[in-house]
Simulated assay, not measured.
Amino acid sequence: MRLPLALIALAATAPLLAQSAPQVPGQMDATRVVAGSYTADPAHSLIAWEVNHFGFSDYIGLFGDVAGTLTIDPADLSAASVDVTIPVGKVTTASAGLTDHLLRAGKDGAKPDFFGPDPSDARFVSTSVSASGNSAKIDGNLTLNGITKPVTLDAEFTGAGNNPYNKKLTLGFSATTTIERSDFGIDTAIPLVSDVVELEIHVAFEKN
């Protein structure tokens, strides 16, 4: 049986196409991690939060422009430290009305329902790191709404490599945790809007 010319041509060019295909610069390869200090890339670092609304559905919002630092030595991961600041005042949701509600002042001098019009930044500062493979438990203190509580992050190393645009060595991490907002004095509409808040964190750090 004779193969169509198009298939013959495709088979002949396949090796060339494979060689020219762009490679993703970040790889989950711990040997690429270089000891030192890193700074968060705010344009590519986000924290998603999720609450349940009235028992009907889950609602998701975002904090962007995350700032912070990471100090890491692959030879001693237990000595790693992270300090991240989250600008609560830049909270984003899919609803302009809801975003306004999160940031509006309290009525008639009362405290705001949620964050208020000029909320302080939130901050997470690690106190210990326990790593195993590409995963880690990061214990630390979260300050939100002026209240500090201990929080544990379940973190994953997602990749390392040189950013092709600015040529900086970049490390990527994701993490999850769950908090109860009432612990931080944000108790409006509980239990209609869940007290439990799930956080999903994605941060890229660039080497200094």
Rank of each mutant, 00 (worst) to 15 (best):
R2D: 15
L3K: 13
L3H: 13
L7S: 06
L7T: 03
I8K: 15
A9H: 01
A11P: 08
P15I: 11
P15D: 07
L16K: 05
L17V: 14
L17P: 05
Q19P: 09
A21K: 14
P22S: 15
P22N: 14
P25W: 08
P25L: 13
Q27L: 00
Q27E: 09
M28I: 04
M28F: 01
D29P: 08
V34N: 05
V34P: 02
T39E: 13
T39R: 10
T39W: 01
T39F: 03
A40W: 07
P42I: 15
S45R: 10
I47A: 04
W49G: 04
G55K: 07
D58F: 08
Y59W: 10
F63S: 06
D65Y: 04
V66K: 02
T71S: 13
T71F: 09
I72A: 07
A75W: 03
S78C: 02
A79F: 02
S81K: 13
S81L: 06
S81E: 03
V82P: 04
V88E: 11
V88T: 14
G89S: 04
S95Y: 12
A96G: 03
G97E: 14
G97A: 12
T99P: 01
T99M: 00
H101P: 08
L102T: 06
A105W: 11
A105Y: 07
G106V: 07
K107Y: 13
D108M: 12
G109M: 08
P112G: 11
F114T: 10
F114L: 14
F115V: 00
G116Q: 09
P117M: 12
D118F: 14
S120Y: 12
D121H: 02
R123V: 07
S128R: 14
S128L: 13
S128D: 15
V129Q: 09
A131P: 00
A131G: 00
G133Y: 13
G133L: 13
N134A: 15
S135F: 00
K137D: 04
I138N: 03
I138K: 02
D139F: 10
L142A: 11
T143K: 09
T143S: 01
L144F: 12
G146V: 10
I147A: 07
I147Y: 00
I147G: 07
V151H: 01
V151M: 01
D154A: 08
D154P: 01
G159N: 07
G159S: 07
A160Y: 09
G161R: 09
K167N: 06
K168G: 03
L169E: 01
T170D: 06
T177K: 02
T177Y: 09
I179M: 10
R181K: 08
S182C: 12
G185N: 12
G185Y: 11
D187I: 05
T188A: 00
I190N: 08
P191I: 12
V193G: 05
D195W: 00
E198M: 14
E200G: 12
V203R: 11
V203I: 05
F205M: 00
F205G: 10
E206D: 15
K207N: 09
N208P: 03
N208C: 03
